[in-house]
């Protein structure tokens, strides 16, 4: 294990405390509430769905970075996961595009 990809320098970030986790959960709850409110605001037109998608991405990122502690862990984990996410999104966008179903 002298030199392996997993031995990249650790990022010396302070690990969150239980208090931090409660704060993060509170933020997640607030975003969810905002999402629900937003889904009733039909007057936003095209902006509504865009905002909803942005909020979902934010929640996704918060859970992955803090709760799944990707932010504090080896970079190789993030890469493996991101490959999956990007792969899924790009492949299925193409599939749906060929059906003209987007």
């Amino acid at each position: 294990m002298a030199e392996t990809v997993v031995h990249e320098p650790h990022q010396h970030r302070k690990h969150p405390t239980p208090r931090d986790y409660w704060v993060i959960a509170f933020i997640l709850g607030v975003i969810t509430a905002a999402e629900v409110a937003l889904s009733y605001m039909d007057f936003l037109g095209f902006g509504g769905p865009v905002l909803l998608i942005i909020m979902a991405i934010a929640k996704f990122a918060i859970v992955a970075l803090w709760f799944m502690h990707l932010r504090f862990d080896l970079a190789v984990y993030s890469r493996l996961f991101v490959v999956g996410i990007i792969g899924a999104i790009s492949m299925f966008l193409v599939v749906l595009a060929t059906f003209a179903a987007l």
């Binding site: 294990m1 002298a2 030199e3 392996t4 990809v5 997993v6 190789v76």
Partner: peptide, 11 residues
């Protein structure tokens, strides 16, 4: 492959 290589066996 990512974690069990012998010492010195770089990618």
């Amino acid at each position: 492959i990512l974690t069990m290589r012998a010492p010195g066996m770089t990618l």
